[in-house]
Nucleic acid binder design. Structure first.
Lengths: 386, 386
DNA sequence: TGATCTTTGTGTATCGTTACACACATGCCG
DNA sequence: CGGCATGTGTGTAACGATACACAAAGATCA
């Protein structure tokens, strides 16, 4: 059979010998061509061609030089997320653009959620890391810190020694929360996973000490109390992004005079429209159907819109909906959302990790803005406010 | 200022010293833990922790071991294409899935279209390559072949020594072409770039020797001849995918008794709906407006559908349209298209490059199928056939 | 014309690890 | 109790390249 037979690479010594020059001359021919006369260079190239020498061995080179020419990317999710999740993809597009500009390769470290993820990180031959949102307790973060390489974390967690880039999720969530919760009586949040267990649930916000659950009008005290018993405490979420957005939504509802324990919280296990459809169905079913749903992502919001349509709810008449990220599908769907450029953020992370930004720019809270669209336009509500 | 100071990595010798064992014992502790007693192992780990030793230096390890634990991916396009082009993204999702399964990292080689792309390839520290469609004359292909590493090319070009995975584009194009061209009088093809120059044009198919351009009814002979003078010769396209699809569309039109020189060919410079909109406008303007457009990608087809709608053309009444790939947007749009699983193909490429498939599976023409939808449903044509 | 600079080629030491072969102790068998 | 397998630790010699310092030969200039 015609196996590729992994033919042995020619080495520099052999090329040097064939070209009648020293090894260093060959080395310079590849690494610093201007250091070699055009004449010799040609002779070396010719010999290399003849021997099928493919250029300096990358491993040997990086051992000696102390750098690899590659930027590592670590996801808090399974590796395929890099290409399956639209947000991650746009972020990585920004990273890739900067890498290409600097001639750097981009290495995606194979994260699968297993214990060996840590080894994968320490084995990665890279010059720096960019981390896409992971949980506070993810051991991968420690492994990255241990390498001593420059590293940037996007979205969290924050860590001494690692740079950090994100929007102010809490402030943004409050802004969009006030928009979507305005005039609502039964608000809900459609949330990303709280922690690495990624358990999908539907419950209420946890009652905060000193407040009386169900105090606001129209909420069944028992149901509320029951929900609160196992309710969602924002601070317990180990994904920083999730935590901050929950806090922001809680702030928004509080500004409207509401209790967190009145807010229904549906937590998805992955960021997918399909799962959102199912969760939205729960939120929109029964006598206590929600009339305002703040989703943490546009995909989730779009799934919600589909379910609302299927169940015959008018948006924003019967229920208001908001998303997050202002993806391409948001505008056509008339979805109110928080716009942030993940591509720009990816680019910024890459620049920091490659040491192309001054140290003052190491950490950054980047821009976002609220995009108001039809899905929260209260004036179009069918039912008048009470 | 608090520069990260690139603190020097501790080395294995230091750990060995601190733990009171030999260097090899430390090496085994990381590389083959079962070779070391639990006791010693703990001692070594402890010493490593104390010294902040992050594990074996990846460069040194790969130099010595002769493998890197990384699969290289090379795109015929700019690196960002990996995350910007939906087809490429799905393909890479398949590649990534297999990599993750094997604990292999995925390195995207930074292609920018410049002359240094070749260097980027030879500098890449990888164990094998997967190549996403590139042109026959792309020097990157030779560079990959020169490395002697296992390599798989998806979509072309074919090369001795490199594996090859693709659908039979010509046959598929013929199938969808017959569907979209059925009953048409002024067919058109909306094509991917022909070669690495990526020049956008609108012209006709080249007249083939021995045939009389404009012989078929209803075509202005002069116009046709003029078009043919600088017409598109499928065989001149250096992107294999483009070439084979052009040939297939030509076959389809020939089966309907038509001449290639009657077929209008619009070539886009990139695979984008926006550019397709503009090109489609050209195809649908004037007295010779096309009545059948076979696009090489769903994005192009969707752009075409939008333009058709804007210009008041009924689909399929006034013009039929077909796409390629059966992307998520194709079904809702009622687009007739060629379905192929790029994700599966990516997975297959990765398996081959990682040496996980038997040599008989090295080259593969994979499955495709024609998906008929409303955009070519001739029975709904408003104008009757002549 | 001698001093100095630039250009170009050359040894040597070293980057940090792992394959390999070997040494020694222990356990197990007949 | 000899013989043999098994488990565990240790030196040595690469793996293939580049940083560095030095040398020789023109080029430049007062």
């Amino acid at each position: 059979m015609s196996e590729t037979a992994a033919r042995r690479r020619a080495t520099m010594v052999e090329v040097a010998h064939a070209a009648g020059v020293s090894v260093m001359t060959v080395s310079y021919t590849y690494g610093r061509p201007e250091r070699v006369s055009a004449d010799t260079r040609a002779r070396v190239r010719e010999a290399a061609e003849r021997l099928g020498y493919p250029g300096p061995h990358p491993g040997a080179r990086s051992l000696r030089r102390g750098r690899t020419g590659t930027l590592g990317v670590v996801l808090g999710e399974h590796l395929t997320y890099a290409f399956d999740d639209p947000q991650a993809t746009r972020f990585l597009s920004g990273v890739a653009g900067v890498c290409a500009d600097h001639g750097m390769a981009l290495t995606l470290v194979p994260i699968t959620g297993g214990p060996s993820d840590v080894d994968r990180v320490t084995e990665a031959a890279v010059d720096g890391f960019v981390v896409w949102t992971t949980a506070d307790d993810d051991p991968v973060i420690d492994a990255i810190a241990a390498t001593g390489l420059p590293a940037v974390v996007h979205g969290g967690p924050r860590r001494d020694g690692l740079s950090f880039v994100a929007v102010d999720d809490r402030a943004a969530a409050e802004a969009v929360g006030r928009e979507v919760f305005a005039g609502a009586r039964r608000p809900a949040v459609l949330s990303f996973p709280l922690d690495r267990d990624r358990i999908s649930t539907v419950t209420f916000g946890a009652a905060t000490a000193g407040t009386v659950p169900g105090a606001a009008s129209g909420i069944d005290p028992d149901a509320t109390t029951a929900g609160a018993a196992s309710g969602i405490d924002p601070d317990a979420a180990t994904f920083r992004v999730t935590r901050r957005r929950l806090l922001g939504f809680r702030d928004a509802w509080a500004k409207a005079g509401g209790e967190w324990s009145q807010v229904r919280v549906a937590v998805c296990s992955i960021n997918s429209a399909r799962e959102a459809e199912a969760l939205a169905a729960e939120l929109l079913t029964g006598p206590d159907a929600c009339d305002a749903i703040a989703a943490m992502g546009d995909e989730l919001a779009l799934g919600t819109l589909r379910t609302a349509a299927r169940l015959g709810f008018a948006v924003p008449g019967d229920v208001t909906v908001s998303g997050w990220d202002d993806t391409d599908a948001a505008a056509p769907a008339g979805l109110t959302t928080v716009a942030q450029s993940l591509r720009d953020q990816g680019a910024r992370c890459a620049r920091i990790a490659l040491g192309r930004l001054t140290s003052t720019d190491r950490d950054a809270e980047v821009a976002w803005n609220l995009v108001r669209r039809a899905s929260t336009r209260r004036s179009q509500r069918r039912r008048a406010q009470p």
